[in-house]
């Protein structure tokens, strides 16, 4: 359904160019949940905003294609793109409170969106809004329609954001860190809600998170990103049982296990993630990689197929 090929997105900051997303390719199939995992600053959000062409003015997609149901999204006009946004692809954000306009009631914002995408009267739109709010488990939906975003808890705001997005009935939902700002128990609620709604609305989900735990629970396919490049991709089984890339290995070993007897030391990565303004030569991970060897600083590996997942690392040879 969605096919991203060789996507490159850069930002211009002063006279410098930041390669935020570099040669990224992946695919999302009908009703599939694809997870994208990586540290902050790895280019996850830029990938999602590139798909919808919502980049800030200093960002630019320099090459690649985004194919959605047979259309190349990057070549669409502004008006055509507006039809895709919402109607076909919905987007929910990390901070739901910030994603709702604070000076309009949620009813106002929902009705506005519903009327934009469906030719219905205001009354019908209001009814639709109430039924959607009920679907995402907002109590007293009728009266709360007149409330402002700040009068809801963060978890509730995220439910409202989801309802708002679903009101347009999209076939792909991009969820950019939908649970990062929420408490752990609320996180689980939102994830299971997304799971249920996915079935009911028959949509695909592109789930972006820095938290492998979140990704592990809910995805059919996983992409691991490091500094703008996908370093490994595979099924959850492949990624978790037999991670190939040293970065993926480190990520997985850093997941805490709630067991006091579990004592395996996590593979600690040296140093911090480098600034995307100042990328290391060769493989971008080599300065922090425990298994780096001399070639790593010279050659930037591309993704290759192995028996398990696809991996971009010089330790592995193309079969």
């Amino acid at each position: 359904m969605l096919e991203v090929k060789n996507l490159k997105t850069v930002f211009r900051v002063g006279d410098k160019t930041v390669h935020a997303v570099d040669d990224v390719s992946f695919e999302i199939k009908e009703q599939q949940v694809v997870g994208l995992v990586g540290e902050s600053g790895s280019g996850k959000s830029v990938t999602s905003t590139s798909i919808l062409n919502l980049l800030p003015p200093n960002g630019e997609i320099t090459s690649g294609s985004v194919n959605f149901k047979g259309q190349d999204l990057l070549s669409l006009s502004k008006k055509e793109m507006r039809k895709i946004r919402g109607n076909e692809i919905g987007l929910i954000f990390q901070n739901p409170l910030a994603a709702l306009n604070p000076v309009f009631t949620i009813g106002n914002q929902m009705i506005e969106t519903i009327q934009l995408h469906h030719k219905v009267s205001k009354l019908e739109a209001e009814k639709e809004a109430v039924s959607l709010l009920k679907k995402v488990n907002i109590p007293d939906a009728e009266t709360r329609l007149n409330d402002y975003p700040h009068q809801f808890s963060l978890g509730m705001c995220q439910r409202i954001m989801i309802a708002l997005t679903l009101s347009m009935n999209p076939s792909l939902l991009i969820a950019d860190e939908p649970t990062a700002s929420l408490d752990v128990t609320i996180q689980a609620q939102i994830l299971s809600l997304l799971h249920d709604l996915k079935k009911e609305f028959k949509m695909s989900i592109f789930l972006i998170s820095h938290d492998l735990g979140v990704i592990a629970q809910s995805c059919d396919y996983i992409l691991v990103m490091y500094l703008g490049r996908i370093v490994e991709k595979g099924t959850p089984h492949q990624i978790f049982k037999n991670p190939q890339h040293p970065y993926t290995q480190a990520l997985i070993s850093s997941i805490p296990v709630p067991d006091p007897d579990h004592n395996t030391a996590a593979t600690l990565l040296k140093g911090d993630i480098p600034s995307p303004m100042n990328l290391p030569s060769g493989c971008r991970f080599h300065p922090r990689c425990p298994k780096a060897f001399s070639d790593c600083s010279a050659i930037n590996p591309s993704l290759i197929k192995t028996n398990d997942s696809d991996v971009a690392c010089l330790l592995y040879k193309d079969d």
Partner: peptide, 25 residues
Amino acid sequence: QEYIKSATARGLSEKRILFKHAFKN
């Protein structure tokens, strides 16, 4: 702000975003 991005992502026109959402805020 994120809510402007969110409104754009919902397919609202630039005119509407500017004159309704940004204007009042």
